[in-house]
């Protein structure tokens, strides 16, 4: 039996076992005006073999969550609380040197805008080699390295010879494929795909997503997808978290969330998104703007834009509560949200 190209490095976890747990994560950026609360009390669990989505508008803290998982937030960003347990081990308190050993080896990333995630002056293969040299358990010689990169390229639909080319010689789609190959190179337990297809045209977007989905299924990978694009999240994920202003407002099975969102924000977000399947309907605009995270509104952060807001919402912050079927919502009045996506003006 030959060893598979991308090995399971999770130490024999079975599909559905808990792999990554994020507990009450708080990450804030320190600025001259005060703390910007980018990630506030976010919790979720990623299971082995699962595709998890984080969705929300720009600036809602999705990418901050992703970067915090690798402790790669900008210099002024500080993890002020919570735990990030990977295979039971908390990554928050460990030293930077120890953290570096986990990066890419255990959690790798496919970045937003893969166009610029390659260093223009080095060959693509050499940039992947850099990760292999650092993390691969035994030293690979030149031929073995080439072989491995070639195999990874074949997996994502690139020629093995492409590893000798420079990033600028690749098209956008090829660069993104190569980024995926690089993310897989060290057998990570988790891949974080941050807007993996945003910079690509729709045709290539679709190809890349299918490719990712296939790889995820074949290798039983655990992937966290982060996107503002609802269609992408709906297509590739098993479970979805909806984020608003640094908070997780709804979490549950992707199918449930997209067919019957319970949080007013999720409901409005989906109602404002056109769909080419199903009956024609009028789009409901989502009024207002996301709050200033330097000074978020008291109570529920969505209350100034929420059609269901009550006095309680303006004072008391709703916790993320279980409402059955592994579905959680942070809303006092979720029962009032109509079931299903409706059309036209709201309430």
């Amino acid at each position: 039996m030959t060893t598979p190209l991308v090995e399971d490095s999770t130490g024999g976890l079975k599909t559905g076992d808990t792999l990554l747990e994020v507990d009450n994560l708080i990450m804030r950026y320190k600025t001259k005006q005060g703390y910007v609360s980018a990630v506030e009390d976010v919790s979720f669990v990623l299971h082995k073999g699962e595709a998890l989505g984080l969705v929300g508008e720009s600036g809602c803290g999705k990418t901050s969550v992703a970067l915090s998982l690798l402790r790669l937030q900008a210099d002024n960003g500080e993890i002020l609380g919570g735990e990030i347990r990977l295979g039971g081990k908390d990554l928050v308190p460990i030293s930077e040197d120890e953290m570096r050993r986990h990066r890419w080896n255990d959690v790798s990333m496919v970045f937003q805008g893969a166009m610029n995630s390659w260093n223009p002056v080095y060959r693509v293969g050499d940039q992947i080699k850099e990760a292999l040299d650092l993390h691969w358990p035994e030293r690979l010689n030149r031929a073995e390295t080439r072989q491995r990169i070639g195999d990874l390229f074949a997996l994502v639909g690139l020629d093995s010879d492409a590893q000798d080319r420079y990033p600028h010689e690749f098209s956008g789609g090829m660069r993104q494929r190569a980024v995926i190959a690089m993310a897989l190179s060290c057998n990570p337990q988790v891949i974080i795909a941050d807007e993996p297809t945003t910079a690509l045209d729709v045709i290539v977007q679709d190809q890349i997503l299918k490719e990712l989905k296939k790889i995820q299924a074949d290798l039983n990978m655990s992937i966290i997808y982060i996107s503002h694009d609802i269609a992408v999240i709906a297509e590739v994920t098993d479970r979805t978290g909806v984020m608003y202003a640094g908070k997780m407002v709804e979490f549950g099975d992707t199918g449930d969330i997209f067919s019957a969102p319970r949080h007013p924000y999720a409901w409005l977000l989906l109602s404002s998104t056109p769909s080419i399947v199903g009956p024609r309907r009028k789009l409901a605009p989502l009024e207002g703007e996301p709050p200033n995270l330097l000074d978020p509104p008291s109570g529920c952060r969505f209350n100034p834009r929420c059609p269901f807001a009550t006095d309680q919402c303006r004072v008391e912050e709703p916790p993320l509560r279980d409402i059955g079927d592994d579905h959680q919502v942070a809303c006092w009045n979720y029962e009032q949200v109509p079931v299903g996506i409706t059309s036209g003006s709201v309430v």
Binding site: L70, L72, R100, R101, H102, R103, W104, N105, S108, M109, F111, Q112, G113, N116, S117, W118, N119, P120, V121, E130, A131, L134, H135
Partner: peptide, 23 residues
């Protein structure tokens, strides 16, 4: 962005500074 990639790969700060940024 490629500096962030280099950091995510777990490279040592000195390697990121010299091999990626200064280059």
């Amino acid at each position: 962005d490629y500096i962030l990639t280099a950091r995510a790969k777990g490279l040592a700060p000195k390697t990121i500074r010299d091999r990626h940024a200064a280059r």
